[in-house]
């Protein structure tokens, strides 16, 4: 078999990605906080001071943002009132959207190459959904989606019985708090699914809910009848 130049598979530790994804929510909150801070004070002459013009190295006792008690290694940033603010959730959804858009290309190329381009034609919307459930989820979380349902009128329900990104979350303030905070993390996979579908030219809205922690149900609405 001839080896494709682009198809030489390289790997990294899944923990590396896991840790990176886990930081997306706190970072989004910090970014939003900073941007809102700077717009709310545009009237004052010191507004430009908020943005630094030098690189500074993070240290253990350095405040990471002006959110109270936001020190390295702590989770106080998640107590910010911005946690479920549109400004933050849209940002997180956008990270996912951009990722899904590009990831779909890479995966399509790879699966087509593997199967000799014949067996793996994606024809209708159900095939696209299966692609999300199998290939995309497999690539992201090393497992497939556990359940796929549709009403054949453009609505799909995808269920992951143990969604990896939130499975390890546990708030010191109890189950209820864990649930509230986990919700923000779900905007990332919502964006990934929306981006993947968009890659096929399908516009959709995707929402997620936690049915039985850490089981997650994704509701996808499209305008396509199937």
């Amino acid at each position: 078999m001839s080896e494709d130049l682009l198809d030489t598979q390289t790997y990294v530790n899944s923990i590396s990605l896991q840790l990176l994804l886990q930081e997306l929510v706190p970072t989004s909150i910090r970014v939003s906080h900073k941007l809102l801070d700077s717009t709310s004070s545009t009237t004052s002459p010191s507004s430009t001071v908020l943005f630094t013009d030098s690189d500074e190295a993070t240290t253990i006792d350095q405040q990471l943002s002006s959110i109270p008690k936001d020190l390295p290694g702590t989770v106080h940033v998640l107590d910010s009132s911005l946690l479920s603010d549109d400004e933050v959730t849209l940002r997180i959804e956008n990270y996912g959207y951009n990722l899904g858009l590009k990831l779909a290309d890479v995966l399509l190329y790879k699966t087509n190459n593997k199967n000799g381009n014949i067996n793996n034609k994606i024809i209708d919307i159900l095939d696209i959904m299966k692609f999300v459930c199998r290939d995309v989820w497999k690539c992201l979380y090393n497992k497939q989606m556990d359940n796929l349902r549709t009403n054949h009128r453009g609505t799909f329900v995808l269920v992951d019985n143990s969604y990896k990104l939130i499975a390890n979350l546990n708030s010191a303030k109890g189950a209820h708090d864990t649930l509230t905070k986990s919700k923000t993390y779900l905007w990332l996979p919502c964006g990934i699914i929306r981006g993947t579908l968009m890659n096929f030219g399908v516009e959709s809205t995707v929402t997620a809910e936690i049915t039985q922690f850490p089981a997650v149900t994704f509701n996808i609405h499209t305008a396509i009848n199937n």
Binding site: Y11, N13, L99
Partner: peptide
């Protein structure tokens, strides 16, 4: 446990770009 490195590259890239 390993994952495809392109996935990692894309994720990090979209973070920096954003």
């Amino acid at each position: 446990e390993k994952i495809n490195s392109e996935l990692f590259t894309l994720t990090y890239g979209s973070v920096v770009a954003q």
